[in-house]
Simulated assay, not measured.
Amino acid sequence: MLDAYSASPNFLTIGHVTKDLHPDGTFSLGGTVTFAALAAYRLGLVPTIVTSADADLLSCLPSLLSPAIPVQAILSTETSAFVNVYAQGFRTQYLRARASTIQPDHIPTAWRDLPVVLLGPLAQELTPQILSVFPRRPGRILAATPQGWLRRWDADGRVWPTPWLDAEQVLPQLDVLILSHDDLLPFANGSRTEADAILNAWSKRVPLLVATDGRHGATLYQQGVPASFPAYPAHEVDPTGAGDVFAASFLAHLYQHGDPAQATNFANCAASFSVEQPGISGIPTPAQVAQRLRPLS
């Protein structure tokens, strides 16, 4: 365990921290847990992380992330590492290394009852059995971003889409599912209409589903009923992590205020900041969001 935070934690995120590799041999710290924990921290929550990585990364993680965010670290021989190549709005991704799988017994007992839990798999590192640690109960928000369950990789490490075979098992155990509309296009023959049909079907199995769609904004489904929320204008520099910032911002606002529609609008605003600077440097503060936030009509 790394440095403990003085206040009681209220936000747990689980998944691999990653190295996002650059052509010059350097890397940026990445991963859903990284972006989500930092966003939650800057928005006033007290986050914790359960992850897996190698000893070298774990030794410098407090300085790369924040010493104020406690981490339960499972030592692995490797840290998950990705190469992301963007061209014409599309990403080609390669997995160069993968850390070990995170098991249910890796979750500290003291963190199993926190009010907000976000499962953020990136490379199939979480199995459905992880849900056994978090039975649904009133007062807790159990959420997931399923992108890591929608990926496979070939012998060269290139990442390809794969169907989420455990969706029917996992969805009824969640309170919130947050994903990108683009994650579903490969399973819908590139058709937005067919992707919408998948979202509609999934939304009937989970109380809240939020689908982000870049410049098109986001769609919130409440018990299967959709509502659209426009995006905020932004000058895109680096889209990496924007969906994770959206997810954490949505959950933070939902936990603090209890209104899914307001939370979606807030998260759209927060995500607009995250694309305007590279990596984690774009994660906004509450004051920044408040200046740009538009009231819902």
Rank of each mutant, 00 (worst) to 15 (best):
Glu194Gln: 06
Arg158Ala: 14
Gln173Tyr: 02
Ala247Glu: 08
Trp111Ile: 00
Cys60Phe: 13
Leu38Pro: 03
Asp56Thr: 13
Val206Gln: 00
Ala252Leu: 11
Ile178Cys: 08
Pro286Leu: 15
Arg136Tyr: 02
Thr32Tyr: 10
Gly89Pro: 11
Ser249Pro: 05
Gln129Ala: 15
Cys60Gly: 15
Ala188Leu: 09
Phe35Cys: 07
Asp183Gly: 05
Leu208Phe: 14
His216Gln: 14
Leu114Ile: 02
Arg42Cys: 06
Gln72Trp: 09
Ala143Tyr: 04
Phe27Met: 03
Ala155Asp: 14
Ser249Arg: 08
Thr34Trp: 05
Pro260Lys: 01
Arg192Tyr: 08
Trp149Met: 14
Leu150Cys: 04
Arg292Trp: 12
Ala73Cys: 11
Tyr94Thr: 08
Arg151Phe: 13
Asp175Trp: 00
Leu131Arg: 01
Leu179Asn: 02
Thr13Glu: 05
His106Glu: 09
His257Lys: 09
Thr162Gln: 10
Leu2Gly: 09
Asp20Thr: 13
Gln262Met: 13
Ala68Cys: 09
Gln223Ala: 15
Ser272Gln: 06
Gln262Pro: 01
Ala144Leu: 15
Leu184Phe: 06
Pro104Ser: 05
Leu209Val: 05
Asp196Pro: 01
Leu95Cys: 12
Gly25Asp: 07
Leu29Val: 10
Cys269Trp: 00
Pro239Asp: 10
Ala143Phe: 03
Ser66Arg: 04
Gln291Asp: 12
Asn189Gly: 11
Asn265Met: 09
Thr193Glu: 15
Pro163Thr: 06
